[in-house]
């Protein structure tokens, strides 16, 4: 069994209107999403705004309750729980196994707490004795390459990159089985971003970290993830090993996304025309395949029949009726 298995996850939000706040429709923010994360693996969840990637991560963290579907999680070997349905009472002891790294290192650290206390807080909540906490904090600071003296200072004394290291140390304090990182480097300057990307790569190697990496930046994702899951309007477009996905995408939306990323190489300028149109409204997704109005390969079937996510070759899934016949361009 994998560390995490998400099966047919749905999260629908009601649209209410009028004096009586009657439900007049639904936003299908997540509409039947399946994927897994193996132990020691980093899966990137990518897509444009409104695709539902953040809602998926919030359902896994149970910051939001799934409408339906299963989120099977293995907190220790041989035991499996469903994070989608487990009662709140039983959820609490599980929280230590799933930790979070936030996007904004300025908003996610309490300015009135010393760094040592911030990192120790999850340990304290979980009843780790004071002496042990102290030793663990020092260990964690070393792990994220901050000096031991950081312990007694306040967050404001640190730069954005250093604060993100503090947030990472806090997330790792309890040796979580799974780390959910929501855009952990997108608020950082390039020179600092590179440091944090390298740190995450180090931690993956040293700790065999399992990570769900939610991101919109496909360049960053190519560096840090083992596999990539691409979402579009609440559905999974494609799931594949990272290098395979970038070299030879199997879904036209993945092809369009990759083509849109400007590469830092003037020799590649203007190689492809950008995909037309805009991301569909998840409150009124187009019938059939949600990408069909923008898809240069769409045929009649795409306009009426919604494609399911299918395994198109071993280890690769795509939800496109034409996945087997199209030959799509990647970036190499």
């Amino acid at each position: 069994m994998n560390l995490l298995e998400v099966a047919d996850l749905k999260k629908h939000f009601p649209i209410r209107a009028g004096l009586l706040r009657r439900e007049v429709g639904q936003v299908r923010a997540v509409d039947g999403v399946s994927f897994h994360i193996a132990a020691g693996e980093t899966l990137a969840l990518v897509g444009e705004s409104g695709c539902g990637k953040t809602t998926v991560s919030r359902c896994i963290l149970r910051a939001q309750r799934a409408t339906s579907g299963a989120i099977r999680f293995m907190p220790e070997d041989g035991r499996v729980v469903d994070l989608a349905t487990i009662p709140k009472r039983e959820l609490r002891p599980l929280r230590r196994h799933v930790q979070m790294i936030f996007q904004d290192p300025y908003a996610s650290l309490n300015p009135r707490m010393m760094v040592g206390d911030i990192i120790a807080e999850p340990l304290k909540v979980n009843g780790v004795p004071a002496a042990e906490r102290r030793a663990r904090v020092l260990e964690l600071l070393e792990l994220v390459q901050l000096p031991a003296s950081a312990r007694t200072r306040f967050p404001h004394a640190f730069s954005g990159g250093q604060r993100q290291r503090i947030g990472i140390a806090r997330a790792l304090a309890l040796n979580p089985r799974l780390v959910v990182a929501d855009e952990p480097v997108s608020a950082l300057d390039v020179s600092v971003q590179a440091q944090i990307i390298n740190l995450l790569l180090d931690l993956q190697d040293r700790l065999r970290l399992s990570m769900l990496f939610v991101a919109h930046d496909l360049s960053v994702v190519r560096h840090v993830s083992d596999r990539v899951a691409v979402m579009y309007v609440g559905r999974m477009a494609e799931v594949a090993p990272t290098d395979a996905l970038y070299r030879s995408p199997r879904h036209p939306y993945t092809e369009a996304l990759l083509a849109a990323v400007p590469a830092p190489d003037p020799g590649r300028r203007g190689r492809r025309a950008p995909v037309a149109g805009e991301v569909a409204d998840p409150a009124r997704p187009p019938p059939g395949c949600a990408f069909h109005p923008r898809c240069p390969y769409a045929v009649d079937r795409c306009r009426v029949e919604r494609p399911e996510l299918r395994e198109v070759e071993p280890g690769r899934w795509a939800s496109c009726h034409r996945a087997q016949e199209l030959s799509l361009a990647g970036v190499t």
Binding site: S191, Q193, Q195, P264, V331
Partner: peptide
């Protein structure tokens, strides 16, 4: 700066050159 920029053309798990400090 150019060496620190993540690239869509990266190889798997490719580390970046960094600039010390901030």
């Amino acid at each position: 700066l150019l060496r620190a920029v993540p690239s869509i053309l990266a190889t798997p798990r490719q580390r970046l050159s960094t600039i010390g400090g901030a």
